[in-house]
């Protein structure tokens, strides 16, 4: 049962998103085309100044391989920089809590995580990272990883629009223009809005406050590695504590929060991420945060239409994304509104009403309820954001399967900034190839012939992430260090591991957080999945861009398969579902599907 509130929230969300995405698309097309933007001449002067000091020229064209090499070296240097700052933070300024240097394996994982736009966090921000690390290393990479994704999308779109060109653009120009014209100004406005709503932005030391009512509680004892201690019978060892004071973490939160959402990064300043009141203070900030995740991915659909000279093509891609999003969001809203059979057996009222949102409220904020929590979960995993306002690990089995599937589709349902667009265009190439096989014509897309080389590269790009996810999961569940991190035995423990690798390889960053993943084993294995899930996909996509740019544009004829109508939208949706889900059906059957059957068979 889905409540009317959920449906209204979803409808209003999509309507406001569409209204904002249209002007954003016009703006992005100008940024991607390299044309001057009226009224922003002062930014153009800054842009030219940056090229001068960098020794590059805006007009210097790059082949796809030069573009790829620049992108890879830039991002590898970013990883090294973030690693170094974490390992030296104790001796660096802006560390009022005197937080220790981050351990080597955690620093490695985090550095790869933020450079790959994944923002998987094995650590808790307020107990691990100094303000300098958060601002200089992590927030900096939030901008650069987002700009990298958008740059690749621009390069691929321009390749479709190009006529017999050797160049796909200039990486430094794409990176600079995206950061300067899009990410920085929108983030600045967004951060000020967040502060106006109650998000904090300061360099204060943490505040100790006295509780009005001391709290006595029991908690599990952990060993030095953070793993739960167990007694001779295998039961968890617990201790009873009384808290009279609470430490309130401070910091420059709003400036990181804005780009965290806008750049589909998702790595929270605090461990509780957007469930924390200093990151996401009100229902209004929550709605705006949800909008900001999809703003650039949706805007890029309209930018695609403008840059290839046929706005209907952008609508078709947006239509396919929206169909997939609404279908899967409806499923998670339904699943989370269900009464939990274990609680129903105890006679607990789980019906939606005037005083409660009902449904499965474990791991959710009462201030957000089922509707906003489930919608946020769908948005954050459809895009490669990974910010959370509820604990996905506590979702119902089918409710938790939706975020899992949205990631496993390859993060193309709106997807990450840039990465959603280039991922969906790769699926579109596959769709026209399949259609070409069916009708016996050489496939074409957006005026370019799709031939053997493009299909080889498309195959690599599509198969990289399932290979990393399934191989990584298999290794983890076979080895003791992998199974040691599971919080639950059986099917749900498997789901936790599958979720971790799906999240890492698809650069999402959210987790079934019961998994204790801040160990050398998971830090290393997930870093491999994150790097290659990002860059081993970008390389063949840039190769496709290079090949397409060199081709002539073919005029539309009576025999050309139209790629702007509902038939193509259906074909594209079918291709994404068939290719995306079929890779994972056996794994999903062992995880969330078994959990669902076990839960409702009792």
């Amino acid at each position: 049962m889905i409540t009317m509130q959920s449906l209204i929230l979803l409808a209003v969300y999509l309507a406001v998103l569409l209204a904002l995405a249209w002007p954003m698309g016009i703006y992005l097309a100008r940024v991607g085309d390299g044309t001057a933007i009226r009224g922003l001449g002062w930014l153009r002067r800054i842009e030219d100044f940056l090229y001068r000091i960098a020794g590059t020229s805006a007009s210097a064209p790059m082949t796809w391989k030069t573009y790829a090499l620049a992108l890879l070296v830039f991002n590898a240097l970013g990883v090294l920089f973030v690693y170094a700052v974490q390992r030296l933070q104790f001796w660096l300024p802006l560390n009022p809590q005197a937080l220790a240097n981050v351990s080597p394996d955690s620093a490695f994982n985090t550095a790869v995580s933020f450079a790959s736009n994944t923002n998987w966090q094995g650590y808790g921000g307020e107990s691990t990272m100094s303000y300098l690390t958060q601002m200089l290393a992590l927030t900096g990479q939030n901008f650069f990883s987002a700009a990298t994704g958008i740059a690749v999308a621009f390069a691929l779109i321009r390749a479709f629009a190009a006529r017999s060109a050797n160049s796909i653009g200039n990486f430094w120009v794409d990176l600079t223009r995206t950061t300067l014209y899009v990410l920085l100004p929108v983030s600045a406005v967004f951060a000020v809005f967040l502060v106006s709503q109650g998000a904090i932005q300061n360099f204060s030391a943490y505040k100790d406050v006295t509780l009005l009512d001391p709290v006595t509680y029991t908690q599990a004892k952990n060993d030095a590695d953070g793993q739960p201690l167990k007694d001779a019978k295998g039961e968890p060892v617990t201790e009873t504590l009384t808290a009279k004071t609470q430490t309130i973490a401070m910091g420059p939160v709003a400036s990181q929060e804005a780009i965290k959402m806008l750049g589909t990064n998702g790595g929270g300043f605090f461990n509780a991420n957007s469930a924390h009141a200093y990151e996401n203070p009100t229902a209004l900030t929550n709605f705006v945060q949800m909008l900001s995740i999809f703003l650039i991915p949706a805007g890029l659909c309209f930018a695609l239409g403008r840059m290839v000279g046929d706005i209907r093509q952008g609508w078709a891609v947006l239509g396919a994304m929206t169909v997939l999003f609404v279908g899967l969001t409806t499923l998670v809203l339904f699943a989370e509104q269900q009464a939990h059979p274990g609680l129903a057996a105890l006679g607990i009222d789980q019906a939606a009403g005037a005083l409660q949102s009902g449904g499965n409220m474990e791991g959710k904020e009462t201030r957000f309820g089922i509707s906003a929590s489930a919608l946020f979960a769908a948005i954050t995993t459809a895009a490669s954001c990974g910010a959370v306002i509820s604990m996905h690990d506590s979702f119902m089995p089918l409710g938790g399967m939706v975020p899992l599937v949205l990631m496993q589709l390859g993060e193309v349902v709106f997807g990450g900034v840039g990465s959603g667009m280039y991922g969906m265009l790769i699926f579109a190439i596959l769709a026209v190839f399949i259609a070409g096989l069916m009708i016996g014509r050489t496939p074409e897309y957006l005026g370019k012939k799709i031939q053997s080389f493009e299909m080889k590269m498309t195959s690599i790009a599509i198969l990289v992430t399932p290979t990393l996810v399934l191989a990584g999961t298999a290794i983890a569940v076979m080895l003791d260090p992998g199974t040691a991190g599971m919080a639950n035995p059986g099917a749900h423990g498997f789901s936790e591991v599958l979720y971790a690798f799906s999240s890492a390889a698809n650069n999402n960053g959210s987790a079934f957080a019961g998994l204790s993943a801040n160990t050398p084993f998971y830090n290393t294995l997930l870093a491999i999945a994150m790097w290659f899930g990002r860059f081993a996909m970008i390389v063949p996509i840039l190769a496709v861009a290079g090949s397409l740019a060199a081709k002539k544009r073919i005029d539309v004829t009576a025999g050309t398969m139209p790629t702007h109508g509902p038939l193509f939208v259906a074909l594209l949706v079918g291709t994404v579902l068939l290719v995306g889900v079929l890779n994972y059906v056996p794994a999903l059957a062992l995880g969330p599907v078994v959990e669902h059957l076990q839960l409702f068979a009792r």
Binding site: P104, F108, T524, V539
Partner: peptide
């Protein structure tokens, strides 16, 4: 320990560059 992870990062870069080289060689095939 730091040297291990720094080498790993450089290895990531080199493997991905090798992938680019491999993709390019596929393109040059007749």
């Amino acid at each position: 320990m730091d040297i291990v992870f720094v080498v790993a990062i450089v290895a990531f870069l080199l493997v991905t560059c090798a992938l680019a080289e491999g993709c390019d060689s596929l393109r040059r095939e007749p």
